[in-house]
């Protein structure tokens, strides 16, 4: 089963995404801030991390760089979901290693499609790697 970690400080948004993804059949774990997110990242393996940018303790960009800086977590796909829409922040998120960026307000259908695409890319990539071996 696909494990997804949602990091979001807005309680309503957190519950909403959790409900949508759970209904779509994913195993969803949540974190309310950067500190809780780091604990969750250290404790379990995830296929996808969906993170907000502005959060207490550690922001989304720190989460992205932490995941990309750790060789054991580098494979995790990251989607940034934020209301921040300025070019600098978006490019910074991608530069640090985010795979996708969704600006709030989001479309639930779009989020599901993007998750599915990232998972497809991961599976086709891993097939390619095993073929090469």
């Amino acid at each position: 089963m696909t494990n997804i970690l949602i990091i979001e400080d807005d309680d309503i948004m957190l519950k909403a995404i959790r409900n949508i993804l759970s209904k779509a059949g994913y195993n969803v774990i949540t974190a309310k801030d950067g500190k809780e997110a780091f604990e969750q990242i250290d404790n379990a393996e995830y296929d996808i991390v969906i993170t907000d940018l502005m959060m207490p303790y550690a922001n989304g960009l720190e989460v992205v760089s932490r995941l990309r800086g750790d060789s054991t977590k580098r494979h995790v796909s990251i989607i940034v979901v934020s209301s921040v829409g300025n070019e600098e922040t978006i490019t910074e998120a991608f530069r640090l290693g985010a795979d996708d960026y969704l600006k709030k307000p989001i479309m639930a259908g779009e989020l599901l499609i993007r998750i599915r695409k990232l998972l497809d890319n991961r599976s086709s990539h891993s097939k390619l790697v095993t073929k090469k071996k």
């Binding site: 309503i12 909403a16 639930a108």
Partner: peptide, 15 residues
């Protein structure tokens, strides 16, 4: 109030 909070986060069909 709850509906407004949801509307701030969702657009499209959900919105």
């Amino acid at each position: 109030e709850v509906l407004i909070q949801y509307r701030k986060n969702f657009r499209g069909d959900v919105g």
